[in-house]
């Protein structure tokens, strides 16, 4: 009886749904080009991610941040048109977070970037070379990565350093 019941439940959940759930893709409202902004125009990460140096979370840009440069169209790309339209309508661009941290981990960018002097690439990979928003984090971080980096740098690996 139990066996039949389980088989019934399994048949209700198709395999594609399970696979899609495992590697859920992040879709951004605009096909933002990091390569142009960072490498070509030399705009620093903290211009758009305001908390990436001194805050707890790096944060995502608001439409008013985009408005500083995109009040009028600078180029001809379709993606820029979306930004200019949003700026003119003062409509927020709902960026999706790529990285998330479990609630029992206490992490601050301030401690790592400003105090520790760690480059953004260490955890975020070569984001600056991306021509399209990546659907998943470029570096899949686990606790082992955190521990290894802490050991390399001689930083405390006590549980309380990250877990409170």
């Amino acid at each position: 009886m139990a066996f039949d019941y389980l088989r019934g439940v399994r048949s209700l959940i198709p395999l594609w749904a399970i696979l899609a759930g495992c590697g859920s893709e992040v879709h951004q409202p605009v096909g933002y080009n990091h390569d142009v902004h960072v490498n070509k125009l030399q705009i620093g990460c903290d211009n758009c991610h305001a908390g990436s140096m001194t805050g707890q979370v790096a944060g995502l840009p608001t439409v008013s941040d985009c408005a500083d440069c995109h009040a009028e169209a600078n180029g001809t790309s379709d993606e820029e048109k979306k930004v200019v339209e949003a700026v003119k309508a003062n409509r927020p661009l709902v960026w999706q977070r790529l990285y998330s941290i479990p609630s029992h981990v206490f992490f601050t960018h301030r401690r790592h970037v400003q105090s520790g002097g760690i480059a953004c690439e260490r955890c975020h990979g070569l984001m600056k070379n991306q021509k399209r928003p990546p659907p998943a984090p470029l570096v899949a971080l686990t606790m082992t990565d955190c521990i290894n980096c802490h050991r390399e740098r001689g930083v405390s690996t006590d549980c309380t350093t990250c877990h409170r």
């Binding site: 479990p102 029992h104 405390s156 006590d158 549980c159 309380t160 877990h163």
Partner: peptide, 11 residues
């Protein structure tokens, strides 16, 4: 911990 504090990891 290295500084003598007893930690509790709830997770």
């Amino acid at each position: 911990g290295a500084e003598g504090i007893i930690a509790q990891v709830y997770a």
